[in-house]
Design a protein around this nucleic acid. Structure first.
Lengths: 247, 247
DNA sequence: TGGAAATGTTGATGTGGATCAAACCTATTC
DNA sequence: GAATAGGTTTGATCCACATCAACATTTCCA
């Protein structure tokens, strides 16, 4: 499945009207705004930035200044330990917000790396603060976005702390499917943008275990796997893997 | 679990001066405020609530309405899976903020349970939103608090996803010690408020593993353990457990 | 205050996923 | 289109932690 790769040359004028005409409007920040408020918002987001596969939007330790709304493409966020071990803390797609980790200490605490050529809307944080004092629904929405990130991470903690390998992978696939669905893509077929190793890092498993578990799901008729291409054949079956006895 | 049995009558006057005279001022919300702003803040927090050991401040699914600043005592937050497995997502002490998980969906997504008789300041969320539109530093501080919660959870993900049992427990102890220190308590001796099982749930380990690892740390002269009492004997040694080869 | 329940420790054994290893497949590059 | 590198699959083996079990200690409250 190809990403919403619009983003050819975008002239200044097009940028000015970024939010008001953006198809991701409902996923991203603004919702339920008056025309007047949308105009304000358009003044907030005045830069888009392309990020090539492998490049980062920001890196750990870097000074924090802006949030980034994923406009198209796919990202991972990662933490790196001194000894080199690294942990993928999330995968992010169109409509997701990146960079909120930086607000608390004024510097970023993880790396945000593009897993395919991507595009983000740069939201200068000061501007967002300002506007969210003026526009109530924006404040409200921004708080919800942060809160949901907290809840998402709770879910990952549950996964990492309490689930077995098969459960983790089932939960992962179902979550991806759900997110693709809510963005209008097929829930039953998609291409993974990340490697087995990155999936493993996110799920607290080794890449071999990820691969084996994919194979097992395939044998069980739950999914079809062909490299990065995944077809969900039995969504209910996958769900029933969650919370099932080790059997 | 008993319902939010509200806060017996508490002297209104004492409450009115809650924030302005609170010793946790710097940990909690307000910081660097003018007298005028502090006055506003005092109007925001007009209830304190006692929570007895074992009772909850809020439960999953419950409608969201307020945030809670821990005034004294100790809490855990937990998620429960359908099949009964549960995951402790955090331990919270004086100055910590609880309830931010509820903002995104207008209902709480975890349980906040007191591990000892405790007291919280109830912060009606609507009031906080309102005030943070008027008082810039409050807005700023609130955003930082949320952001730090995101970063804290990143850290837990790293712990759960990439560390071995000994590392997890060492990180846990060091984190606790650090938090006690920053609250003016001893960094080298403290009492655990939670059981081995709760520690295990938080760290993704079984209680037996927690117990054994405590014993091992004791044998190695890193800590002294006597039931819930912990003395950190060799803080550097504990740090060196992190990121050390399985050796 | 006594006795039951909850919590904690320690030992013996089992196992899920890690590790090590070897092919294989796919994409990129020159 | 051959060479190379990155990614994936699969098998054999290992080990960190889980599980099962027995007992010790503390806490709770009737």
């Amino acid at each position: 499945m190809s990403a919403p790769k619009l983003a050819r040359v975008i002239d200044i004028h097009a940028l000015k009207s970024a939010c008001s005409s953006c198809s991701l409007r409902e996923m991203c920040l603004p919702i339920g705004l008056s025309q007047d408020e949308i105009d304000k918002l358009d003044q907030m987001v005045y830069t888009r930035k392309r990020v090539k596969r492998g490049d980062s939007v920001y890196r750990s330790e870097e000074k924090f200044g802006s949030l980034y709304a994923v406009r198209s493409g796919f990202f991972k966020t990662t933490l790196v330990m001194e000894d080199g071990r690294d942990q993928v803390t999330g995968f992010h797609m169109a409509g997701d917000m990146l960079g909120m980790d930086g607000i608390g200490s004024d510097q970023h605490s993880c790396n945000a790396v593009a897993l395919e050529d991507s595009e983000v809307c740069v939201i200068p944080y000061g501007r967002l603060e300002e506007l969210s004092r003026e526009v109530y629904v924006l404040q409200q929405h921004f708080h919800k976005v942060m809160s949901r990130e907290i809840v998402r991470e709770h879910g990952v903690m549950l996964l990492l702390g309490s689930m077995r390998a098969e459960e983790r992978l089932a939960a992962f696939l179902l979550n991806l499917a759900q997110r693709f669905t809510s963005r209008g893509y097929s829930a039953s077929e998609f291409n993974l943008r990340m490697t087995r190793e990155e999936i493993g890092s996110f799920l607290g498993l080794k890449l071999e275990t990820v691969s084996r578990t994919f194979s097992k799901f395939q044998e069980d008729g739950l999914i079809g796997v062909q490299q990065k291409n995944i077809r969900i054949l039995d969504s209910e079956g996958l769900k029933s893997v969650l919370g099932r006895d080790p059997a």
